Amino acid sequence: MFPETFMADAASLTLSNTPVPAAQVVAGSPFTGSAVLGDWGGKELGVWQMTPGEMTDVEADELCVILSGSGMVHRQIGGETVQQPLVPGAVFALLDGEETLWVVTETVRKVYLA
Rank of each mutant, 00 (worst) to 15 (best):
G71V: 04
M50F: 08
R109M: 06
I66M: 13
V108K: 15
P85L: 07
D96N: 14
G79S: 03
T56H: 15
A60F: 08
S16K: 13
A10S: 09
L86P: 03
A11P: 02
Q24W: 14
A8P: 08
V87C: 05
C64T: 03
G42F: 01
T51Y: 06
G89R: 07
G78M: 05
T18M: 11
Q76C: 10
W48I: 01
G71P: 09
V73Y: 09
P30V: 10
S12D: 14
C64I: 02
A60W: 11
Q84L: 01
G28L: 00
D39N: 13
D9M: 11
E44A: 03
S29N: 14
A114F: 07
G33H: 05
T100F: 02
G89N: 01
E98D: 06
L15H: 14
L13P: 00
L113E: 01
V87R: 15
E80L: 12
L95R: 15
T51W: 09
T100E: 05
T107I: 07
T105C: 02
W40F: 15
C64H: 05
T105A: 10
P85D: 01
L101G: 00
P21T: 04
W102D: 04
M50C: 15
A93Y: 12
D96L: 07
T32C: 12
A8W: 08
L86Y: 09
P52R: 11
G33W: 10
E106V: 14
P52K: 11
P52Q: 12
V47Q: 12
E80G: 03
T81A: 03
E99K: 15
A27H: 00
D57P: 05
D39L: 11
G33M: 07
T81I: 04
A8G: 07
E44I: 14
V82D: 03
V87N: 10
G97K: 10
V111F: 08
E59S: 09
G78V: 08
V73F: 04
Y112G: 02
F92W: 14
K43F: 14
V25A: 05
A23C: 06
V20Q: 05
L101C: 02
L15F: 12
S12C: 12
Q49R: 02
Q24G: 00
C64V: 03
T105R: 09
A11Q: 14
V108R: 13
S16E: 15
H74K: 14
V36S: 13
D39Q: 15
V65E: 15
T81H: 03
